[in-house]
C-alpha cells in the first residue's frame, strides 16, 4: 500500500516537473543565466511548491503520520562544511547540465544517451561518496559495473 502511494506520488511529482518546465535543461540553464537572457519563470515553481508543503508541515508536524510511524523529526539546524561544499558542488553540476535528480529520472521517459550517462554518473558520484564516507575500508566494495 505504502509503495503504491509512493509510486502515485512519484507520478504526480513527475507531471509537476514536466508542467513547470523543470524537465527542460535549456529552461533551467536560462533560469540560472542571470547575466544573460534571464528566464525567471522557474522561480515560481518553488513559489507554489514551498507554501503548499509548509502548510502541510504546520498542520501535521505535531501529529503522527496517517500511515503510522514516528513523529516528524525536527530539521537539523547546524551548518557545517559538508553542507557548503556539497551544495556548492551540486550547484555546479546543476548549472553545467541543467538537470537535478528528480528530472534526471523523469527525462528517461525519453531515453537518450546523454540522459542515461547523466543518471549513471550521478549514481557513480553517490557510490564515490559512499566509498569515501566510510571511516574504515570496506569489506564489500560495491561493484561499479552496472
Amino acid at each position: 500500500m505504502r509503495n503504491l502511494i509512493a509510486c502515485v506520488a512519484g507520478i504526480v511529482f513527475a507531471i509537476g516537473l514536466g508542467v513547470s518546465g523543470m524537465t527542460q535543461p535549456s529552461k533551467v540553464i536560462g533560469f540560472l543565466d542571470v547575466t544573460g537572457q534571464w528566464d525567471p519563470s522557474l522561480m515560481f515553481v518553488m513559489g507554489s511548491a514551498i507554501p503548499i508543503y509548509a502548510l502541510a508541515w504546520f498542520a501535521r508536524r505535531r501529529h503522527v503520520p496517517w500511515l503510522g510511524g514516528s513523529k516528524f523529526p525536527k530539521p537539523r539546524a547546524d551548518l557545517d562544511w559538508r553542507l557548503f561544499a556539497g551544495a556548492g558542488l551540486f550547484g555546479i553540476g546543476w548549472g553545467l547540465a541543467g538537470i537535478c535528480p528528480g528530472p534526471a529520472v523523469t527525462i528517461l521517459g525519453r531515453p537518450t544517451l546523454p540522459a542515461i550517462v547523466f543518471l549513471a554518473a550521478a549514481v557513480g558520484g553517490m557510490l564515490l561518496y559512499r566509498a569515501l564516507d566510510r571511516p574504515k575500508p570496506l569489506t564489500n566494495i560495491p561493484s561499479t559495473s552496472r
Binding site: 514536466g18 559538508r82 561544499a85 551540486f90 553545467l96 546523454p114 554518473a121 558520484g125
Partner: peptide, 28 residues
Amino acid sequence: RLPDLAGGKLWVFGVAGLLVGFGTRLGG
C-alpha cells in the same frame, strides 16, 4: 516537455552527473 538531448556532449553530462550525485550526498 522532455528534451531531446541526443546530440549533447557526453563528457558534460558525465561530469555534471558526478557533481550532482556526489554533491547532493555530501550536502544532504
